[in-house]
Amino acid sequence: MVRVFLPAHLRTLAHVRDEVQLEIQGPATQRSILDALEAAYPALRGTIRDHVTQQRRPFLRFFACEQDYSHESPDAPLPEAIASGAEPFMIIGAIAGG
């Protein structure tokens, strides 16, 4: 079971109040987590990564165990603490004024 932390606007869109918990297929990677997230909450499709290119939206970052994985391969394994659910996979929106 993987835990995913979403920005507030995406929690509202997905109608969840807190972290999301997901079962994933295979190793925990950015892609496997996002695939599972979008399958469970299809309203989030296109909001985190582009519908067509599957590229991360530029104002979002992916953090795991206090490390920035945004520029890592989407298929690179994430730490065991993410795979086990000990730590959440965090999707963070850039902080900006306005």
């Binding site: 109608h15 909450y41 499709r45």
Partner: peptide, 17 residues
Amino acid sequence: PTGPTGPGGMPQGESNK
């Protein structure tokens, strides 16, 4: 309706595409 219904009632996300 996307009330607090969980995954079962969620749309397929194509409307944003």
